[in-house]
Simulated assay, not measured.
Amino acid sequence: MGALTMQSTPDRPSWLELPEIESPWGTLCYAQNDDSLPFTLARTYFVRDIPAAAARGGHSHRRNREVVFCIHGACTLWLYDREGRELRFRLEQPRRGAYVPPGWWVELGDYSEAAMTLVMASQNYDEADYIRDPEEFFHAAPYPDPVYRPRP
């Protein structure tokens, strides 16, 4: 499996930075349905108190677009195309997330202890939108095992 280079298009993963406002009382980061997201926001969710040994993801979306942030601690997001080529994002700055268009296999791991991720999605939850079987997603073996998480 080779590596891909990142290009900023609606069909390619890329970095996304939220606008922020600094003040003596703290820093406010925000997203709204304007130009701060590459889609209209439909759903937001977070996962907290993630153990360092956790492995999450192991799926792709048919239509849903997401931006994944690690807003406390750090983690690594691995994305794979259908040929098994990898893109890697180290999420460790709360305002900097990874844009994940549909059609990319998602793996998360390499967490710092008690990390927290925040996901902004273009669609409400719909189980039918998920591809959870790697044999259905990847065009050829070998492909990343859904339990396997690459390590740096």
Rank of each mutant, 00 (worst) to 15 (best):
Thr117Pro: 00
Gly103Lys: 10
Val119Pro: 01
Leu87Glu: 02
Gly109Tyr: 02
Asp129Tyr: 06
Glu113Ser: 12
Gln123His: 13
Val100Gln: 03
Tyr99Leu: 08
Val100Lys: 01
Tyr125Val: 06
Leu118Thr: 06
Val106Trp: 05
Gly103Arg: 12
Arg95Tyr: 08
Leu91Asp: 01
Trp105Tyr: 09
Ser122Phe: 05
Phe89Thr: 00
Ser122Gly: 04
Val119Cys: 15
Thr117Gly: 09
Ser112Val: 10
Tyr99Ala: 05
Thr117Asp: 02
Asp126Tyr: 12
Gly109Cys: 04
Ala121Pro: 02
Asn124Ile: 12
Ala98Gln: 05
Phe89Lys: 00
Arg88Asp: 01
Gln93Met: 13
Arg88Asn: 02
Ala128Trp: 06
Glu127Val: 14
Gly97His: 01
Ala128Leu: 11
Trp104Lys: 13
Arg132Gln: 07
Gln123Gly: 10
Ala128Gly: 04
Ala115Ile: 11
Ala121Gly: 13
Val106Gly: 00
Arg90Tyr: 07
Gly97Pro: 04
Leu91Phe: 07
Asp129Gln: 09
Leu108Arg: 02
Arg95Ile: 12
Ala121Glu: 10
Val119Arg: 12
Asp129Asn: 04
Gln123Tyr: 06
Glu127Tyr: 12
Ala128Phe: 05
Glu113Val: 12
Phe89Trp: 00
Tyr130Lys: 11
Arg90Pro: 03
Leu108Cys: 00
Gly103Ser: 08
Pro101Phe: 02
Leu118Asp: 07
Asp133Pro: 06
Arg90Ala: 06
Phe89Tyr: 04
Gln123Ala: 15
Arg132Cys: 03
Asp110Trp: 01
Leu118Gln: 04
Leu118Asn: 07
Tyr125Trp: 15
Ala128Glu: 14
Val106Asp: 02
Gly109Met: 03
Ala121Trp: 10
Ala115Cys: 09
Pro102His: 14
Gly103Val: 13
Gln123Trp: 05
Glu127Ile: 14
Trp104Pro: 01
Glu113Asp: 15
Thr117Asn: 07
Asp110Arg: 09
Arg132Ala: 08
Trp105Gln: 03
Val100Gly: 00
Arg90Cys: 04
Ala98Pro: 01
Arg88Glu: 03
Val119Leu: 13
Pro101Cys: 03
Pro102Leu: 14
Val100Leu: 04
Ala114Gly: 10
Ala121Arg: 11
Ala98Ile: 06
Val106Arg: 13
Asn124Ser: 14
Glu86Met: 04
Tyr130Asn: 06
Leu91Asn: 08
Tyr130Cys: 06
Arg96Phe: 06
Leu108Asn: 03
Tyr99Gln: 01
Asp126Pro: 12
Glu107Lys: 15
Asn124Tyr: 07
Trp105Asn: 00
Pro94Tyr: 11
Arg132Asn: 11
Ser112Arg: 14
Gly97Trp: 02
Glu86Ala: 10
Arg132His: 09
Asp126Lys: 07
Leu87Ala: 01
Pro101Gln: 11
Asn124Ala: 15
Tyr99Ser: 05
Tyr111Met: 13
Glu86Ile: 08
Tyr125Asn: 14
Met116His: 05
Arg96Ala: 11
Arg132Leu: 10
Glu92Met: 09
Asp110Ser: 13
Gly97Gln: 05
Asn124Thr: 14
Gly103Phe: 09
Trp105Thr: 00
Asp129Ala: 03
Gly103Thr: 05
